[in-house]
Nucleic acid binder design. Sequence first.
DNA 1: AAGATTGCCAACCGCATATTA
DNA 2: GTAATATGCGGTTGGCAATCT
Length: 356
Amino acid sequence: MGRSPCCEKIGLKKGPWTPEEDQKLLAYIEEHGHGSWRALPAKAGLQRCGKSCRLRWTNYLRPDIKRGKFSLQEEQTIIQLHALLGNRWSAIATHLPKRTDNEIKNYWNTHLKKRLAKMGIDPVTHKAINGALTGTADDKSAKAAASLSHMAQWESARLEAEARLARESKMQTSVSSPTPFHSQPNNIPVSASSPCLDVLHALQGQRVDIESPTSTLTFTGSKSGMMATPRTNIPEISESNSVMWHQRSDELDVEESNWQFLRKQQGMVLEGKEREENLIGCEEPWFTGMAGVGAGFTGMLLDGSTVYDTSECWGESNNVQNEHNSQASDEEDKNYWNGILGIVNSEVPLQSSSLL
DNA sequence: AAGATTGCCAACCGCATATTA
DNA sequence: GTAATATGCGGTTGGCAATCT
């Protein structure tokens, strides 16, 4: 529908924020919460539109924002998620604690995209340009693309469901009046078993606190419906290490059928200890436990036919050929992710992973 | 030393969607 | 059901700093 007219008002200041303006905005939100962004500038004594205030807060002033250089792990996460989700920066940001969508977007555009292009990989499609990396297109790459597309659709559905649940939760908890930021149950946005976030859990093989500054999801602690009825998403690793998920059937029956499609495509699902063992395999500290993910996506990209070789993990010798992998077709398929891994590995100083 | 070029990122713009009246 | 309003998202830009010539 119609656009907000607030930014079209004459007399509102634009451009860089001054320390005084920052202080006013910060002080107001800390005391009253942001409430209605539209009404905030007048109440806070700012000659800005609400939109500008919201942006300043979410991208800069929020206390739970991590600034500085991206770690190696963050870089890989961005690349992987971009391959999965495309330019959905807010969705990607939900998987990167303390990073804003704007920051991720900027980093992608100024660093990662260039690196991919330099590697001969199309940053949009994540496919080799002119077969530079993985050879010419064939049935496998077509199937991989289809799988990836399907996965992206699935992730979209998950995000929508997540947003819907958040809304419902919000309604149930009767959050009718804005809560001052400092008095919220969690200054840090919650990581209450959000299904979407579980993707990253699988990526990292461990539970992590997701604190996306830009996440639009707001749960309200123990009163929240989300907390009362935690979702039980259980990752499963297929034979090709693809990550599978069990959803609450009462919510996501349709989505479940999508996964069955994938299961069918990917092969049998491992259970219990066997699954856990498949999550282990990479020596690289940060990658430990990630085999299920990198490998999962890799598996999909390779049509699930190639077992991921953990010796090719990020940080390991990407150029070292796997002596045990003698099949020409496997070599031809030298998976896309290895190429991606090599990009950053070859251009980013190792110490970058220990920054921040 | 100075002008040109490039890289970076905060902030803006406009569209899409959700919410409200 | 419709229109107005509010908010969120992603693309783009402007300006500053660093680097190059």
